[in-house]
């Protein structure tokens, strides 16, 4: 974890206390011992210095660039119909209307797509939790022969790109008769090594005394998992759940291969098809933007509700390498 690497951080600077007397280093403050006092007295950030200005400009530009595509999506969706022949590039739409949402909803069959997308993502999440939580518990809290080797196998699967497994998985799913079904969209994602890894990292921090106490109270492996480990690991479980949902909901390659009939298209697939269909005629960008906005809503909602969880989840993956 990034926090772990920084535990050896104070080394170069050393503890502050003995570093006081050697005055020669303090070029700027001749009176070294009073330096901290002077610093405390000087109110910071009264006048923005050049560094602060650079920082503000950088952040402002960064935020504008980050938000611009979302703003442009919204602006286009609520504006008048737009084709390549009559495009509006002024920030304020000439008139506001919501017809595009209605058109997009029907043209792209977005209702069923949203249901499929959310349903498939939730089913994947349920399966991943059911497989990853027990495995993480075993790796974090139980001792058994081959633990290190098995855990290395789990981690190694993280390196395999989806495109390597796509072909055999397609064959497997077809052989099971799940090609072009929602089950086929779910099954290959039933477990996720990253989730096992992140949960194990978190569960490893649960003190051994807690496990010992559980054993003394006569709790078996299952009861310990259910009534001790899962409640204690709830924050980590929440983080990986948010992460899992966003990944599944935004997945594009696998649905593109498996969901051949339009009836079970996931939202990104429905949107991509709407775009391809409309390029044969003259595309209406207002309609496409409205569709993009509609299919973004579930992931945006999850993001808004669970922003902190998402950040924790991402930095959790930053952990191992």
């Amino acid at each position: 974890m990034s926090a772990g690497t920084s535990s050896d951080a104070p080394a170069p600077a050393g503890p502050p206390a003995p570093a006081g007397p050697p005055a020669p280093t303090g070029h700027r403050n001749p009176a070294a011992p009073t330096a901290t006092a002077a610093r405390a007295a000087r109110p910071r950030r009264r006048l923005p210095g050049p560094a602060t200005l650079v920082r503000l400009v950088l952040l402002t530009v960064g935020i504008v660039v980050a938000v611009l595509p979302f703003a442009w999506m919204l602006r286009t969706a609520i504006g008048p119909p737009q084709t390549a022949l009559a495009l509006e590039s002024n920030p304020i739409p000439s008139r506001v209307q919501f017809d595009s949402f209605d058109q997009a909803w029907h043209a792209g069959d977005l209702g069923p797509a949203l249901l499929t997308g959310v349903g498939v993502s939730l089913a994947i999440l349920a399966l991943q939790l059911a497989t990853a939580v027990p495995a993480a518990y075993a790796f974090a809290c139980l001792r058994f022969r081959g633990r290190t080797a098995l855990f290395a196998v789990v981690l190694a699967t993280l390196l395999v790109p989806a495109q390597v497994t796509a072909v055999p998985n397609y064959v497997t799913i077809s052989a099971l008769g799940f090609a072009d079904t929602r089950v086929g969209l779910v099954l290959p994602f039933m477990t996720h090594a990253g989730m096992i890894f992140m949960l194990r990292q978190y569960m490893s921090t649960i003190p051994g005394s807690v496990l010992d106490a559980a054993r003394m109270d006569g709790l078996g492996t299952w009861r310990t998992l259910r009534s001790i480990i899962v409640p204690l690991a709830a924050p980590a479980i929440a983080s990986v759940s948010v992460f899992s949902f966003l990944l599944s909901y935004n997945e594009y390659l696998w649905p593109l291969l498996v969901a051949r009939s339009p009836g079970i298209a996931t939202p990104p697939l429905a949107l991509a098809r709407l775009m391809t269909d409309s390029s044969s005629v003259i595309p209406d960008f207002a309609e496409l933007a409205a569709a993009a906005l509609i299919i973004s809503l579930p992931s945006l909602a999850v993001f808004v509700v669970a922003q902190r969880r998402l950040a924790a989840g991402i930095t959790g993956t930053g952990a191992g390498a």
Binding site: P69, F70, W72, M73, T76, L246, Y249, N250, Y252, P267, P268, L271, A272, M275, L288, A289, A291, A292, L293, I295, S296, S299, L300, V302, F303, L310, I314
Partner: peptide, 11 residues
Amino acid sequence: VSANIVAMAVV
């Protein structure tokens, strides 16, 4: 990061 990449590609 949370954006749907296909939606953003369309935009």
